[in-house]
Amino acid sequence: MNPINFNQYLRKIELRKEKIDSFSRYPYCLPAVKNLSTLEFHPKVTYIVGENGTGKSTILEAIAIAYGFNPEGGSKNFNFSTNNTHSELWERLKLVKGVKKPEDGFFLRAESFYNVATNIDEIDAVRSYGGISLHSQSHGESFLSLIMNRFKGNGLYILDEPEAALSPYRQMTLISRIHDLVKNNSQFIIATHSPIVMAYPDSILYELTDDFKAVNYQDTEHYKIMKSFVGNPKKIMDILIAE
């Protein structure tokens, strides 16, 4: 359990189970949601990791929407919608905030980043994102342009699989940028599959299976699998493609 820090922007969430009429329908049927009671956040960086389908993005999306961010991503000033697919989970979350309000914030979700980039062009806000249309850059360059130029500090940043467009080297650049922003009074909540991205030391790391479990970095399945593969790729490949 983290020490109480009333200055962090988001301290914890609580699932209001009394407002859920059935746990047999989506998203409440997801084990991670069904077993969710209270989830505490680190004042600097909180990671949520786990296999595909465990509900990481669903929960992260709900947190972002409940905090006031656009469901498809962006800052609180974004109000576009291209496909209304978000769940109602956000309506069943209680956010416990700190005494300070962030001066900045952004919800980055890899799967709908194209729509965010389009909206940035439409509202003529390119200057805040490096001065070049994100659509005129590669996918990875546009991610970094957003993070390096738009994230100002003193903010709450919710990132859903930010490694999706980034090379391993650029993922390390992301870690460096996260550290700079943390030193500038920022808080991050990140869902990721990347052993590089989840390596930031001053953090809490929740591994999501049927429930949220705080784990050490080296004990995550992602780290152990990647270490095993990189340490002996031939052995792993022989197993994977055995005749």
Rank of each mutant, 00 (worst) to 15 (best):
M1V: 14
Q8S: 14
Q8H: 11
L15M: 10
R16G: 11
K19R: 12
D21S: 12
F23G: 08
S24Y: 05
Y26P: 03
L30T: 09
V33E: 00
L36N: 01
T38D: 13
L39A: 05
L39N: 04
F41D: 01
Y47I: 09
Y47C: 08
V49W: 00
V49D: 00
E51G: 08
T58Q: 03
T58P: 00
I59R: 01
I59L: 12
L60W: 01
A62H: 03
F69P: 00
N70H: 02
N70S: 06
P71F: 10
P71Q: 08
P71H: 07
G74I: 04
G74Y: 00
S75G: 15
N77Y: 10
N77K: 11
N84I: 15
N84L: 15
S87C: 03
W90R: 03
E91Q: 15
L95E: 11
V96A: 15
K97D: 07
K101G: 11
K101M: 14
E103W: 09
D104W: 08
F107V: 05
R109Y: 04
E111A: 12
Y114W: 10
T118P: 03
T118E: 14
N119A: 14
I120E: 00
I120Q: 01
I120D: 00
D121F: 03
E122T: 10
I123F: 04
A125T: 07
V126F: 05
R127D: 11
Y129G: 06
L134K: 06
L134N: 02
Q137F: 05
S138M: 13
F143M: 09
F143L: 09
L144V: 08
L146H: 02
R150V: 06
F151M: 12
Y157Q: 01
Y157C: 03
I158P: 00
L159D: 00
D160A: 03
E163Y: 02
A164P: 01
L166K: 02
L166D: 02
Y169V: 15
Y169D: 15
L174M: 11
H179M: 13
D180K: 09
V182D: 01
K183L: 13
N184T: 07
N185Q: 07
S186C: 08
I190G: 00
A191C: 07
S194L: 02
P195R: 06
P195I: 10
P201V: 13
S203N: 09
I204R: 09
Y206R: 05
T209Q: 06
D211K: 12
F212S: 05
K213Y: 04
Q218Y: 12
Q218E: 15
E221I: 13
H222G: 11
Y223V: 10
K227A: 13
F229P: 00
F229D: 03
F229Y: 11
V230G: 03
V230Q: 04
K234M: 13
K234W: 08
K235P: 01
L240I: 08
I241P: 05
